[in-house]
Design a protein around this nucleic acid. Structure first.
Lengths: 188, 188
DNA sequence: TTAAAGAATTGAACAAGTTCAACTTTTTAT
DNA sequence: ATAAAAAGTTGAACTTGTTCAATTCTTTAA
């Protein structure tokens, strides 16, 4: 298994080399060309992924056709559509590569099997989900109490690596503002 | 164990009566008087709770002293501060009873022990966290693509039971708007 | 390498939401 | 039952962010 994924997993839980070896065969390395979609709205999500290299944008479309960026996933981030993966319903999300990328994919069936056979896998994703929950709660709060400019500054300071890979239009849709307004913010 | 909690758990996972019996002793029924705090900013969170009756508001204060409502927990909802509970750091949250309430509390030490001894407990909270994640993602998207009025309408239609128990001021802070503006929205 | 498409910038008019202050209504504590 | 405190309402002036349209700069594809 790739060192980057091992380190990522070990940020969350203690796990033996043996256990990692058991997991390893279920992660398949895959290339995704720039602009290609790993998942598209309407698909049923049958995988989860970990980004080894490159960058993805995860977004949905609202009624008016505006796209809304849920998050970006660069190197060392996970790609998941919890809703579609868990409930096997058509996804509302798109996962698009912003540059040529490499991901490790695990199939839903394999992951479900691992949940059954290896309690530590339950633990890993329980911990990851709880941490992610905290991050989403903080992001919502920031949306309520900070101005667009403050949110912009926070983003580029917190994720400079991602900021450098994305278009301002995409960043605006992540921040929840129009790109014209982001342009005006930047001018100041 | 209370029927309400059993039904809640069985919404998420399949679990035998025996297993539920094993969990049961760790949930302690507690009364919380109206206006009392189950958790206060600065406390280290050493419990998680399930609301049997009543209603709580979970909120934090920003720099300016404005309070920001993260969520409401009425009957059949869980009370958690994942950040403080997981990392044992001082909490940024307040959990205040909006009316006389009854909760089932599980202590952190007991829960951690159950995670170790009963893999199904890992599974329960893994599933619950993943579902919660989806809900938080949707809420954020709604904040981006809907107006305050639309969010208000969505809230009272989705949670009429909660809407009836809370003050407009508290609802405004959940929606991310000033209460004066909520008042203007309602006039229309 | 050039044409076409997409991304970024700018300004002017506009809409959504805030602030502040004064006032009324409801709730709470004694 | 009453006084005090908290919650809700309203209006006027203001700020933040949007919309639309025109223009420029950058990237992409043939």
């Amino acid at each position: 298994m790739d060192k980057l994924l091992i380190d990522n997993i070990r940020k969350h839980i203690s796990i033996s080399d043996d256990e990692l070896d058991q997991l390893s065969p279920y992660f398949q390395s895959t290339s995704v060309d720039k602009k290609k979609f790993l998942l598209q709205q309407g698909d049923i999500c049958r995988f989860e992924g970990f980004v080894l290299d490159g960058c993805f944008r995860i977004f949905s479309y609202d009624q008016k056709g505006n796209d809304n960026t849920l998050y970006f996933a660069a190197k060392d981030w996970w790609l998941m559509d919890n809703d579609s993966f868990l409930n096997q319903l058509p996804s509302e999300l798109n996962m698009q590569a912003l540059e040529d990328s490499t991901v490790l994919l695990i199939k839903r069936d394999d992951k479900m099997m691992l949940y059954e056979k290896m309690p530590i896998v339950e633990k890993l994703f329980r911990v990851m989900s709880q941490k992610a929950l905290v991050a989403w709660q903080r992001r919502l709060i920031r949306n309520h109490c900070e101005t667009a400019k403050e949110r912009y500054t926070h983003f580029i300071q917190t994720y400079p690596d991602i900021a450098s890979k994305i278009k301002d239009k995409q960043l605006a849709s992540y921040l929840g503002i129009r790109h014209e307004f982001l342009s005006k913010i930047k001018k100041q």
